[in-house]
Design a protein around this nucleic acid. Structure first.
Lengths: 228, 228, 228, 228
DNA sequence: CATGAATGAGAGTTCATTCAT
DNA sequence: AATGAATGAACTCTCATTCAT
């Protein structure tokens, strides 16, 4: 109702305010729309998000959204592809030459992943993907192919390194993978829920939790558990 | 509420049994509706479930559903309350006097919980609850109060027992609680997703996974790790 | 905001007025809807007709229409099928045993067809079918199979009778068929347009036109043109 | 209007021709738009044609269309007016001095009209005009005044010539006019529909049909039908 | 003049909810 | 109590039209 920018010339202000909507910014629009969509999809799920809301949050009209994405479903897919692909890229960057103990490698991987990926918005897509999976078989496939499988492969590689170097007991890596993913997924969902309502009295501190988790799990993996 | 005393006259009994049957059905309506709703909500989520479907699955008409539950939201709440209460009751039953090592106690608790609770339908409510959290703040509160907190308390008690008895290293039990819950939650979601699409090439076997998980975690908790 | 019905008992009036809509008449609905749709489709074409208009004309709400027909397109198809099938049935009934001259038979067929079929509403579907044909390839197919082909067959049979009995010159019946249909189609379109706006100064009188037309055409077909 | 004089200086000519070309294009824009619109309106009807398509087919942008025509409806009107005027002009050109038998005159008129007018695109406007009549009362009026009435007058004149010269029986010319128009209209619609779907197994050959038709009708008009 | 990104009223369709039977 | 026909608000998507560039 009230324009809160101190302006000297009212007429000019009016013109500018008219000009504020109806800006031509073709290059930026897709990104802005994807960001708005990411925010709302993670907050409200797929079905719970109205296309008009997305448009509004991106600062455009309903119709503009459809100029860039032909349907709500395609918008969702674009969000998933865009942000989860970025996640994968980041994860791959993290792996590299690592000199030290594999236990430290895995803990660092986990903590790094949380800081740079898990704590961000895109990880919030997990919930809608799982919950509305039946609507989007191809999205699920994409998620499996692009997120789940690479993550598994990455972790298995790290575990194998530990076993090969004699640092870990020989374990069923297939199962241990899930063991390592579980706390991360737990954290993702936990955080997402926390944003809606403070769930636990003593709020879970992600990094501490993750460190503790990894220590516990890795302690169980060690060939020669450290004796004081 | 119940009137199932055997009658003396056969004919009258038949008539009554027909009448009773209708009465019985009437009395069972809410349960049948809740069961149908549970099935559909866990399969398709809240938004993805149509009230007509619920009614149909329960073998009644659309209007009848509204005779028992004033709205879809209330139906959902009733489902959550009913089945989570059952879950809690079951969970409490599992806990008992235990003579042996706390490590075994916890593993048994987890496996038992999975067999009697986690693998059942009601645990599938987790996803819709989290996903629609913003629509149902009171449901979330209920979930926290009735499921999360008691579970935490139970696990903490078990952990304390282990520390007190000198079986476990003194650890930050608050954090370890989450560590133990994580794989369980992971399993719940995994199973729910599996029904939509087989995610991993070698499908995860719940009991084995849980046992492995617990072993890993408990191994890390032990004061004197078992040496073969 | 203001209730403008002069009523003695406000409450009773309200109840009655509420009761007036919301009548349950499942059996009659489809017919009422089809009739409303027929009227509007012939008047405004397919694209020009709004589903809500159809519903309103049928005295029901928008949603009710979708209880009986899953989409606007299916409604249109149902209209075409229903009313054109009736047309065909009627046409077939007209043909029968005929004792007299084939020229008279054909004129009688045409006049009868006009009176009982052509002058009615359903013939007005021709325009939307032709005009929006590309939207409805199957409707066109249906129209061809169920209306065009049988009509052709019928007329050809009559012509053959005339040739066989030596009343007509041997002619290319394939082409004469179109000759006989042309004035009928002309009349259908003409009438449809007339209903919108009075097209010609001296309005065309259908029956006279048809009789004249048939006389002209049949005169050309006669083996021995009647000499006065 | 035309400025195609050869210039003396080659370079200057090139520059001018580029400039002229742009000017030419500018001057031709309305025509190009009308042509594109004609094509699409006849193919897809009024409602089925999108303004953007028209612009694209004319090789300009959406906005440019609105520079020349203030709305889709006005564009349609312009198309109808432009091309029907052309039709009328062509039709008038066809009429001339004719020495022979009026029967031949009329057949020649019809065949000529088909070849030079009827078989062209503009005749395809008939269907959309009739179908959208309620949207465009003034267009219908225009159509009646500029196409229907002159055509009638022309044909009546020809018929009167035949009657006056004693070649035709004295007939109700008013009605015969429609008789002669009917097969032509039939052909126009038939052709338009044929482009969507081949309606009859043995496709109608326009010129043959028209000749046969005219022969039939004229045969019926002759005072002394030709006897072999 | 020309462009094409942006707009938003409007149309088709769904579905939770109501209520006459 | 039970039914299911009827309702209409809400939502997705389209496209004629506008206007900043």
């Amino acid at each position: 109702m009230n324009a809160d920018q101190p302006s000297s010339c009212p007429v000019k202000t009016l013109i500018q305010s008219v000009g504020r909507h109806r800006q031509r910014r073709k290059a930026e629009r897709p990104q802005e729309l994807l960001e708005a969509a990411l925010t709302l999809f993670t907050e409200k799920g797929f079905a719970g998000t109205r296309t008009e809301e997305v448009a509004k949050l991106a600062g455009v009209s309903k119709g503009t959204l459809y100029l860039y994405y032909p349907s709500k479903e395609e918008l969702f897919k674009a969000v998933v592809r865009t942000y989860l692909t970025a996640v994968i890229r980041e994860s791959h960057d993290i792996i590299g030459r690592y000199e030290g103990h594999t236990g430290d490698l895995i803990r660092d991987l986990a903590l790094n992943w949380w800081e740079r990926v898990g704590s961000g918005k895109p990880s919030g897509l997990l919930l809608p993907i799982l919950n509305e999976a039946h609507h989007f078989p191809d999205i699920v496939q994409f998620y499996v192919d692009e997120v789940v499988k690479p993550s598994h492969a990455l972790i298995i590689a790290a575990l194998d390194r530990g076993v090969t170097r004699g640092e870990f007991r020989p374990v069923n890596t297939e199962s241990v993978v899930h063991a390592l993913i579980a706390p991360i997924q737990y954290l993702v969902l936990y955080r997402h829920c926390e944003s809606v309502c403070a769930i636990s009295p003593a709020p879970l501190e992600p990094m501490t939790f993750l460190a503790t988790q990894m220590d516990l799990l890795l302690h169980g993996l060690l060939k020669q558990p450290t004796t004081p």
